[in-house]
Amino acid sequence: MKNKGMKEFQFTNLDEIENVLYRYIKRNIGPGTYLSERKRISDNIYIYKIGNTYPAFVHTPSNKVPIIKFLKFPVVGTIRIERKNNLFKVSIPSREDIIQKGKEKYNSLIVSAENILLDKTYSKIVKIPLVQTAMSKIREILIQLEIKQEINLFDYYPSEREKLLRYLKFLEDMDYVRKEKGKYIEGNRLSVIRHKLKGEEPTELYTKIMADILRKGYTYMSKHLRLLQIVPYLRIANSYYFPSYEFNELLSIDKHRFTTFIADYINLFYNYRTPEYKLNNQINDVVRCGILKEEENYYTGYEKIFNEFSRDFNAL
């Protein structure tokens, strides 16, 4: 049975198909679409992958005027060619299917890129003042465990217990705490980290512990504990390093255009617009914590973060 929205055409010559397909997808799906090389599946079946590209304006030190580079979209559809007798039947997905699949695949790539960046930058993000404020309840629990070796919910006001319990269950799932005889005590992972970091100055010790919690629990913290103060910083980092990866170079963006550059990519990646004054402050925090850096009249990134990000993204 033909899939809903699937277009079918018939040809008598395989060689004429590619030119027709190229013109068809450009006209009916979008000007940024392209065909990959034909792949032969069997004697009678061939497929093409449909990809997509979109333009982006970039400022670099060597180009004072913005230049256009094209970001490659992942594969967003498949064209199937089947030979029956002397005819070739071509099945092409609809424009709506292509758009939907493109969105799904691209969103998946953005999430993957964000997770990789978190792994490379968590020890820096956790030093941002607003992130420390967001995670203050977790820090309070860890300090309480160190001082009293246990946490009893009944030591807290009834109005505080529900929120505290949510945090304790989160930390319990990560093996930072465990429940014993109705009370919460230090979990195995926390014990191991404390032992490993024995001798560290207390402030640095807790920064490293909080960084580990952020790395392991970011998704839960942002979605379920609603610690949304953390989200913008990772989005800014992703909106710089992922385009750099796509352009295959560590981008340097003019200071006067950097906020617009980041805002445009946040809107593209996350469909969200941040007020400029907020974004400027957040960018400043990302620079101060060492995820991005300022050079003369440009903002740029760090080679180490970029190279490790590119390596891990290529391995997906």
Rank of each mutant, 00 (worst) to 15 (best):
E246P: 04
N44P: 10
I128G: 03
S244N: 08
F258G: 12
K4M: 09
N314G: 11
Q149T: 14
N52L: 12
I92T: 11
N281H: 09
Y218T: 07
I116T: 08
P243S: 04
L87V: 13
L228V: 10
E186K: 02
Y299F: 15
K216F: 07
M135T: 01
G5E: 11
L227D: 04
L197M: 07
D97S: 03
K101G: 00
K103C: 00
Y245M: 07
L165Q: 08
E104F: 02
I151A: 00
Y220L: 05
K64G: 10
I141E: 01
G32R: 07
K26F: 14
D312A: 12
L145F: 03
N107Y: 05
S222L: 12
L251Y: 05
I50F: 01
R80M: 10
K124H: 09
P93A: 01
A113M: 04
D15P: 07
Y220D: 10
V58C: 02
I29M: 08
K183P: 03
V75G: 03
L87R: 12
I92N: 00
E96Y: 05
D212S: 04
E172T: 04
N188K: 09
I236Q: 02
F306V: 08
Q149K: 15
D264P: 06
Y270M: 04
F57N: 11
Y156E: 05
E201F: 13
E8T: 09
S191Y: 07
I143N: 01
R23K: 11
F9P: 12
D285Y: 08
R83W: 06
I147Y: 00
R311I: 09
L234N: 06
A237I: 10
N152L: 09
K208C: 04
E104G: 03
I41D: 13
Q100R: 06
K120E: 15
I17H: 01
L228K: 07
E146W: 06
A56P: 02
F73A: 09
E201Y: 12
N28V: 10
E294M: 12
K183N: 08
I128M: 08
E146C: 08
T60H: 06
S123P: 03
P66A: 04
K223A: 14
N271D: 12
I262V: 14
P232F: 02
R226Y: 13
I92V: 15
K179W: 04
I151L: 05
N85I: 08
H195C: 03
E16H: 10
H195K: 14
R95C: 07
M6R: 09
P243I: 10
N3I: 05
N281Y: 06
Y184K: 00
L225P: 14
L268F: 13
V75C: 04
Y34F: 15
F170A: 02
A237P: 13
V20K: 04
I79R: 01
D97F: 11
K181Q: 14
D173E: 14
T33R: 06
E201P: 10
K179G: 02
L190D: 01
T219N: 12
L168M: 03
N44T: 11
E303F: 13
I79E: 05
F269G: 00
F11R: 07
P158E: 08
T60W: 08
V231P: 12
S42F: 12
S136G: 00
D254Q: 11
N248C: 01
N63S: 13
I151H: 00
R215M: 07
I213H: 01
N297T: 11
G301P: 09
E104R: 03
L250D: 02
